[in-house]
């Protein structure tokens, strides 16, 4: 059994009448990437910042490296790297000055020049922070998080606000970090991010963990292989048709105006049925998409909401 490096039991935090974190328990094993997936306001940041010692918990236990941590003291802080959800750095410093500054706060640190190259900031090292692009700032945020060569990395929404290209780059950097032996806990509201990066996922909603497991476990728990969605153009009423489809081949049909969505374990059969019905009942099918279910579907099934509005 692999070593558990972070363990959280029954964590609670309340702001006035908002239960930001409501009895949350989870663990992270060494060299794992664990994603905390959830919509805005789910309590991801609060949870992470309690673990980082930046906010106080109301209740609950935290264990680091098998030892109970009542306070997140400087011994723990030496061993963790933190990327906050949004950090603006000192605007008038250069990239290299910023990295040196953070390196100077720890007992041990990586070589600044090496980190600059690893995070593709070499060219920008003499630029002022105020002159950096969003992607460069994000890479700098990651670079400052690893500057102390931490064992555990906390990344709070590391790709929010980035364009797809920059997001891909960041995913690559995070994968490389895992390969170099870091344990990573990240939060995200992009299900693709969790699917691409995470070994295990905790799905948060309204301060609670509503599901957990590896990406494939979570998706398999839906009990379907494929999702078919399409649009129907007809004067007729499709409601009775869908009822029949549902009866005959055990399809789950949901409908939103003239958009239909069918979940199935037997794709071939379902498609045949749909087209047969279309031909006999004389309606047109358009914009058909067939895809594998993803974490979004898991979230939808559990909460009835989408991850992002």
């Amino acid at each position: 059994m692999e070593e558990v490096v972070v363990k959280v039991n029954n964590l609670k935090k309340q702001y006035k009448d908002v239960k930001a974190v409501d009895d949350v328990s989870f663990y992270v094993k060494k060299k794992e990437i664990v994603a905390i997936l959830g919509p805005n306001g789910a309590g991801k940041t609060t949870t992470l910042e309690i673990l980082e010692g930046l906010r106080k918990r109301d209740e609950g236990e935290i264990y680091y490296f098998g030892e109970k941590a009542d306070q997140i003291d400087s011994n723990i802080k030496e061993k963790i790297g933190v990327q906050l959800q949004s950090t603006v750095f000192f605007q008038n410093l250069t990239v290299i000055e910023t990295l040196r500054a953070f390196a100077g706060l720890y007992q041990k640190s990586l070589e600044v020049e090496k980190v600059l190259t690893d995070f593709n900031l070499e060219e920008k090292k003499r630029s002022r922070i105020s002159k950096l692009s969003g992607g460069q700032l994000q890479r700098l945020a990651l670079a400052t998080a690893v500057i102390n060569d931490p064992e555990i990395l906390f990344l709070d929404e590391p790709t929010t606000g980035l364009d797809p290209q920059a997001r891909r780059n960041t995913w690559q950097i995070i994968s490389n970090l895992r390969n170099s032996g870091k344990t990573i806990i990240l939060t995200t509201h992009y299900m693709e991010e969790a699917e691409f990066l995470a070994d295990r996922v905790y799905i948060f909603d309204q301060g609670k963990i509503i599901a957990e497991g590896s990406v494939s476990e979570l998706i398999n728990s839906l009990g379907m292989n494929s999702i078919i969605s399409f649009k129907i153009n007809s004067n007729g009423n499709f409601d009775d048709i869908s009822e029949k489809l549902f009866d005959e081949i055990d399809l789950k049909v949901s409908k939103n105006e003239n958009f239909y969505r069918i979940e199935t374990v037997d794709l071939e059969n379902a498609l045949l049925k749909i087209f047969e019905e279309a031909r006999t009942k004389k309606f047109d099918i358009s914009d058909m998409i067939i895809r594998k279910p993803n974490l979004e579907d898991v979230f939808l099934k559990l909460t009835g909401k989408r991850l992002r509005d």
């Binding site: 010692g53 930046l54 400087s74 933190v82 906050l84 603006v88 953070f102 706060l105 400052t144 102390n148």
Partner: peptide, 14 residues
Amino acid sequence: EKGIFKKLSSSPIK
């Protein structure tokens, strides 16, 4: 406001 102090407090500085 910009979280610079917060980021600094995540380091072992007292």
